[in-house]
Write a protein that binds this DNA or RNA. Structure first.
Lengths: 332, 332
DNA sequence: TACCACAATGTAAACGTTTACATTCCAACA
DNA sequence: TGTTGGAATGTAAACGTTTACATTGTGGTA
């Protein structure tokens, strides 16, 4: 039912090749013909069949965005960043966020193997071996958004976890004069979390601050884990003066643990986080944390991917880190 | 480079038609042949070219999801709901969230006209005339997520604004014995907001509560607008005893206005909101509000759309409301 | 005038699938 | 034994576009 170039050709009394050329702004077609074709096309309410176009050009203007199977306040910002950038280059964004029914590996395979997507952005906290091998089997370009440790051979976009966590630690030590600082880690298999922990340790070491083993306590990014970890910390005989939680949610858990004990933040104990979630500024007291320019993750990933797609995947693998900034509030 | 059915056919010594049939589980092909084909296909690491398939079948397994040009905590939940449901029926979800570069109407046209998407879900606070006419020009099925007032001829999925707001108002009146209740409205051109306001008024009227004109004050869903509106209310000589803000963000603004005046919630004045954003439970005091099952919006929309797609858009237009519940906390 | 070069347009093949229709083959039945 | 019917498979067209190559026409130059 929809108009095709064939019909346009018939009405405009030119060949379909000319129509195609006129529509794609080929300089070879004379202005007069072009105008005629354009006129007829708009009269017929013509829209190119993108399926046919992509098919014959053997490339897709779809970018696949694979998200982990957990909800997150930041996802919509990343999606927006990708989508915004993609649209600007005439690409569309396809999102796969659920892996309940199909494994992540399956998602990667259909998306990359089926030719549906011209390239894929994968947001993933940790690259397991089977995912790596699935990735290596595919020929379409892809970009990974993840904390980058040891992802040597891939193009990655990362939060600058190291510098941010280092800076925060340094701030606690040199500006706030804390000497007894605890750290609540993220999940063991999360790259971002691992780097934050590393940076914390190195910052302490470089500033001559002793890292007590029992002051590094494991969390998993959830509020509850932060609460529990914090309770351990403040119940011990040698209480730290400040707690650096690897993300804001756990910092929130710390607040609850601390305040339920009747202690005051920051008077009795300081707390800082990482992420600057929406909640952070409304906490009581407002949380000092690290703000990451999340949407840049999406923008950068899309830009890099598109350049790969348009250069036939030949561009070298790049490593991009997006900047962050300390946001000092009242929690320490 | 990727394997095609042609190569499979050659190796398996059958025709491409048989390959195609075997791969799509056509009962006509004998088990033995089918197994052979499947074996060869997997040996070759074959993935069907989805572009070609969609093209020839003249249908797309892509669902377009058009989001408004504003960020929102709930978007990722809606996306997830859509995506999850879509995947289950072998559809993919395409998101368009940015309209900086192209107008919403343009987005609708490329997506619907180009055949790229088999159907479209549009999340939009208010259906303007030009959007309606763009919609009416297209032949692909679509579903609208929006507060439904006067969208008679479309399939819509809505939050049950009316009942929720009515119930909340009734709660304030009958359970909490407030008689002087103010309402802060949402933006004028937002269907959801309009319905909440209507329900508030009717609930008051039906319970014999006087609605003072100056107690209905305009907001725009932003925190700042809530703050400003609230200031107007508490500065007036005839102060209300409770404020019903049309969303949580404005309720948060109310908190700030009220607390900066040294007044206490709920002792001096009650505040309730709508949405149950993440923040709500952590506010001080925790906010009484309305919780909507947001992900159901996405699920329902996707289910309805897919049934339309698979029935050639012939199903009648339906109206679905997703339920909500009062969540009683400590703010009134 | 004859020829060439190049600009504008046309012709037709190609992309990978699905599927209507054609063919083959075999079993069942008269 | 011959015929019929249906099951299994094959052949080829079709989908809407792009594009390599072919054709035509025009103006300039020798």
């Amino acid at each position: 039912m929809a108009a095709t170039i064939k019909e346009i050709a018939k009405i405009a009394k030119v060949s379909i090749a000319t129509v195609s050329r006129a529509l794609s702004n080929d300089p070879k077609v004379i202005e007069e013909t072009k105008q005629l074709v354009l006129k007829v096309a708009s009269d017929l309410n013509y829209n190119p069949n993108l399926l046919a176009r992509n098919f014959v050009k053997r490339k897709s203007n779809l970018i696949g965005l694979i998200l982990p199977d957990i909800a997150d306040e930041f996802f919509s910002e990343i999606i927006r960043g990708v989508d915004d950038t993609a649209l600007r280059s005439n690409y569309f964004t396809m999102v796969i966020s659920s892996h309940k029914n199909r494994s992540l590996v399956e998602s990667i395979q259909t998306l990359m193997g089926g030719g549906l997507a011209g390239g894929v952005i994968i947001l993933i906290p940790y690259l397991s071996e089977d995912i790596k091998s699935a990735l290596n089997n595919e020929r379409i370009p892809f970009v990974i958004i993840s904390g980058d440790n040891g992802l040597g051979s891939y193009s990655t976009i990362s939060i600058d976890n190291y510098n941010a966590a280092y800076e925060m630690t340094q701030y606690l030590i040199t500006q706030k004069n804390y000497t007894k600082i605890a750290f609540i880690t993220g999940p063991a298999d999360n790259n971002d979390a691992a780097i934050r922990q590393l940076a914390f340790k190195e910052a302490c070491r470089n500033n001559g601050i002793r890292i007590k083993k029992s002051w590094i306590v494991e969390g998993n990014f959830s509020k509850e884990s932060g609460e529990e970890a914090c309770r351990k910390l403040i119940d011990s005989k040698d209480k730290p003066e400040a707690i650096f939680a690897a993300n804001d949610m756990m910092a929130l858990g710390c607040y609850e643990a601390i305040q339920s004990k009747g202690l005051k933040i920051p008077k009795d104990i300081g707390v800082v986080g990482f992420d600057d979630i929406l909640l952070a500024r409304f906490m009581n007291p407002p949380l000092t944390t690290v703000k990451v320019h999340i949407n840049e993750l999406g923008i950068m990933a899309a830009e890099l991917l598109i350049s790969k797609i348009e250069n036939n995947n030949s561009s070298a693998n790049r490593k991009i880190k997006v900047s962050s900034e300390l946001v000092i509030r009242k929690s320490c």
